[in-house]
Amino acid sequence: MNRDLLADFLRSRRARLTPREAGLPSGERRRTPGLRRQEVAQLAGMSVDYYIRLEQARGPHPSRQVLNALSRALMLSQDERAHLFHLAGQALEQPGGTGRRRGDVPEGILHLVASLEEVPAYVLDAKYDVLAWNPLAGVVLQNLDEQSPQEQNAIRWVFSSPDIAERLGDQETSRFARAAVADLRAAAGRYPGDPGIQALVAEMLALSPEFAELWDRHEVEVRRDQRKVIHHPVVGDIHMTCQVLPVPDRDDLRLVIYTTEPGSPSHRAMRELRRLVLSS
């Protein structure tokens, strides 16, 4: 159980929830946004003193019943509820997951990535290291083959960029940055004490004010399928669907595949990019 992180998360979720959203009367003017501690305790059916101790990182180990009550009171999403349980040392069972933390990629997944010749495909671990990729993904993801293992990390690509403040004005970059940080925080809850995740977070907090600002929001959301646009200097913009697939029996790994609508300009652009890759 990480009492400090649990306390931070509870305070951040309480601050974002309005009385109206929680079904409470607004009453007199409030000095700070969000619910009061006594209101959260009332909604969760627990004593105010117990809840205050949780927010002050000095409370007892909360039971699953207490965590479920807090999830309902704070109107947490499914991902946020799982994060709350992880922080409290009450990890939820994940279908198909084993809780293992290894950097290797199963041989069958490597064969699958290599066989996907017409779409970019790569394997991502919990801290956003790209562990394996096919030739198209190597081109789309900034010439992966030419980068060191330290550089082959999607979060470093975004937040270590010298023009990050300007790039976050771009809707595509901003959406990815926010989603990646929320997903990384969820991973930090699933794997408490993981040295790789802790080191990456510490590095980014020291180097990037933009990362620090997003990290302090305590947003939690596991990465799933999403639309995105790849800006390529030769074939132009490619509109894609980013499919994020869990690797069976490896809850720390995900297979990411970029697909385009058949017959669309983006599909033709991707075929042209593949032709350029094969001819190089």
Rank of each mutant, 00 (worst) to 15 (best):
V158H: 02
G189T: 07
I164N: 04
D225C: 04
I164M: 04
Y191N: 03
F159Y: 10
G189H: 07
K228C: 10
S148D: 09
R227Q: 09
H239T: 04
I238D: 00
L205R: 15
F176T: 02
R178N: 05
Q198R: 08
A182G: 10
Q150N: 03
K228S: 06
Q147E: 08
C242T: 13
T173D: 01
V222Y: 14
I230W: 06
A199I: 01
R227Y: 08
H218N: 06
N153I: 09
W157T: 09
L200G: 02
E166L: 10
H231G: 02
M240K: 03
L200Y: 11
S148E: 08
D145W: 03
G196P: 00
R178G: 00
A188C: 11
N143M: 02
V158A: 09
E219M: 08
A188Q: 05
L144M: 07
R223G: 08
E210W: 12
P192W: 03
D145Q: 15
L184F: 05
M240I: 15
Y191M: 04
L168D: 09
I197P: 01
Q198I: 01
S160L: 15
P162L: 06
L214Y: 03
H232P: 01
W215P: 00
Q171G: 10
P209F: 14
L205T: 03
D216E: 10
G169Q: 07
A177L: 04
G236V: 08
L144F: 01
F159T: 00
E151T: 06
A206L: 07
A165H: 05
I164E: 00
L207I: 03
A179P: 01
